[in-house]
């Protein structure tokens, strides 16, 4: 029996690692594309749930644009509770609206972390599209840049074949140019994302997180 057996520990919640997905569900994503995207989301769910630390720490949210306009399909939920949705493709590409909705969601999530005293890692935002925004995207792009420059998030833009990479380049911050998805490698993309998030969620102050090589796209 040690004198220190009576030492009590503080009960603090696990730190969180928010990950926001902005997904294009416009008409052009129909058929094989949306099927592969849905498969990819299932892979993301499975990969994160296999890792005990990541399932407690990574939080996923999904905002779609296209089918039904801009929709919050999934508000932030820990990966352990995340169930991959089945998305359907239809309609236009209100990308600007989705970015704004997503960033609002992220802001309110950060506020709840702060008020609950939950520590968190820098959020990751993933925009995936095969098109061209059909709404006003410039104000949203400016917001993305401001957030990135203020260190408010890491923003990744991924273009599926047919995406207007030039516009995506104006939305993404120059420090992290848009990535063109090779074919329909959604599965590889989401495996990469889950592996990266696992690494981030286990990282320590000052850690330099080495990301796995990107095998699914090119800058």
């Amino acid at each position: 029996m040690s004198q220190l057996d009576i030492v009590e520990f503080a009960s603090n919640p696990d730190p969180r690692c928010p990950c926001l997905l902005l997904l294009d569900t416009s008409g052009s994503m129909g058929g094989e594309r949306i099927r592969e995207l849905n498969e990819g989301l299932i892979v993301l769910q499975n990969e994160l749930q296999q890792d005990p630390l990541a399932s407690r720490r990574v939080e996923v949210a999904i905002v779609t644009f296209g089918n039904g306009g801009v929709q919050i399909v999934q508000d932030f939920v820990t990966a352990g509770q995340f169930s991959a949705p089945s998305l359907a493709a239809d309609g236009y590409t209100p990308m600007g609206g989705a970015i704004n909705t997503g960033l609002d969601l992220l802001r309110s999530r950060k506020d709840s972390y702060k008020s609950a005293g939950v520590q968190y890692y820098r959020p990751w935002v993933f925009l995936i599209t095969d098109g061209d925004p059909t709404d006003s995207w410039q104000p949203a792009a400016q917001r993305v840049r401001q957030e990135v420059e203020g260190n408010g998030m890491a923003f990744f833009a991924v273009g599926v074949a047919g995406a207007n990479m030039q516009t995506l380049g104006q939305i993404a911050h120059p420090s992290r140019p848009p990535i063109a998805l090779q074919g329909l490698k959604f599965r590889e993309l989401f495996i990469w994302l889950s592996q990266s998030q696992k690494r981030v969620s286990g990282s320590k102050p000052g850690d330099q997180v080495s990301l796995p090589p990107v095998g699914w796209g090119s800058v």
């Binding site: 004198q3 220190l4 009576i6 030492v7 009590e8 520990f9 503080a10 005293g117």
Partner: peptide, 19 residues
């Protein structure tokens, strides 16, 4: 995570007193 109440940013006394 063990020695601090992070929500209130204060030391967790039941950690320190016995130590």
């Amino acid at each position: 995570l063990l020695a601090m109440d992070l929500a209130n940013k204060v030391a967790h006394s039941p950690f320190f007193v016995p130590i």
